[in-house]
Structures are given as structure tokens and as C-alpha cells.
């Protein structure tokens, strides 16, 4: 299982890096936008491109955050759960997460089909490229949860 953890970490790192790159692109686009408006450079659509990278930034990191325990959680009540119930509780939490991730993943796949011919105004980014972000990000998240489920179930059996 250590090996699988290693490959998951690799994917997570690659996704974090891509997200960080998106952040730097957003930064560059914002600066260009301020410059364009205040010096009349006439760039247009920078905002729409920046928002596109924002979508990618958000979905790229959900899987890594689940892997590293980085999602915001409220854990003071669950700390009081008796030790022997904990693996079961973990399984339950993972199942809820898996359900939510799977529904949005599937909806995004369908959205890629439904909006295959449409594009963003002004900059003509194909809309399926927007929905590809949740497909990729949540796809990885689902794998993270399936792996966790597998480990938890093994622990309960043992």
C-alpha cells in the first residue's frame, strides 16, 4: 500500500504544481488587466481567462487535500467517538464523500457532452474545457476515496 500512496502523492504534487501555475497566471492576467485599463492598452477578455484558471485551480487541489487531510473539517465531536467505532465512522464519512464526488463527476462528464459546441464569450474557450476541470480533479478525488475505503475496510476486517 505504501507504493500506492507514493503514486497518489506524485499525482497530488503534479496537480498542486499545475494549480500553482494557474495562480501565477491569474496574477499575471490581473496585473495586465490593471495596466491595460489604466494605460489604454486595449487587452480584452483577460478576466474571462483568469476565471477559467480559477476553475482549474479549485478542482485540481480537491484530491490532494483529501489525501493530506487538508479539507476544512469540524472534528471536536468525532474525537469523542469510542475507539472501536472509529473505523466504521471513517467508512461512513468516506462513503458520503464518495457519493458527492461521484455525482458531480458524472454531472461534469454529461455537461462536457451537453455543451460540447459552446464557447466562452469573447475569448472562445470551449466550454467542455471548463467542465474538464471537475472531471480531472474529482476523478482523482474519487480514486483517493476508493483507496481510503479499501484501507478502512481492511482495517475493520483485521
Amino acid at each position: 500500500m505504501a507504493e500506492s500512496r507514493l503514486s497518489f502523492d506524485r499525482v497530488a504534487s503534479a496537480f498542486y504544481a499545475t494549480a500553482a501555475l494557474s495562480l501565477l497566471l491569474i496574477l499575471g492576467l490581473m496585473i495586465a488587466r490593471v495596466a491595460s485599463r489604466n494605460f489604454g492598452l486595449g487587452f480584452s477578455g483577460l478576466q474571462i481567462i483568469a476565471q477559467f484558471f480559477e476553475v482549474w485551480l479549485a478542482f485540481l487541489v480537491v484530491g490532494g487535500l483529501a489525501l493530506d487531510g487538508g479539507h476544512i473539517e469540524i472534528d471536536y465531536l468525532s474525537q469523542r467517538i469510542p475507539e472501536r467505532w472509529k473505523p466504521l465512522h471513517d467508512i461512513l464519512v468516506t462513503l458520503v464523500c464518495l457519493f458527492a464526488a461521484a455525482v458531480v463527476f458524472w454531472g461534469s462528464v454529461k455537461a462536457m457532452q451537453q455543451f460540447r459546441d459552446s464557447t466562452a464569450p469573447l475569448v472562445d474557450i470551449p466550454i467542455p474545457l471548463y467542465y474538464l476541470a471537475p472531471v480531472v480533479g474529482l476523478g482523482f478525488l474519487i480514486l483517493v476515496y476508493v483507496r481510503r475505503l479499501y484501507l478502512d475496510v481492511k482495517e475493520v476486517r483485521a
Binding site: 500553482a20 485551480l57 487541489v61 487535500l65 493530506d68 487538508g70 479539507h71 476544512i72
Partner: peptide
């Protein structure tokens, strides 16, 4: 700092 930021902001914007 950029990588760190994607983690912090990712956990907020997904909410």
C-alpha cells in the same frame, strides 16, 4: 508560497 496558497485557497473556494 504559491503551492501553499493553492492548498489554503482550494479548501476555501471548494466550500
Amino acid at each position: 508560497a504559491a503551492v501553499e496558497t493553492t492548498k489554503t485557497s482550494g479548501s476555501i473556494v471548494i466550500i
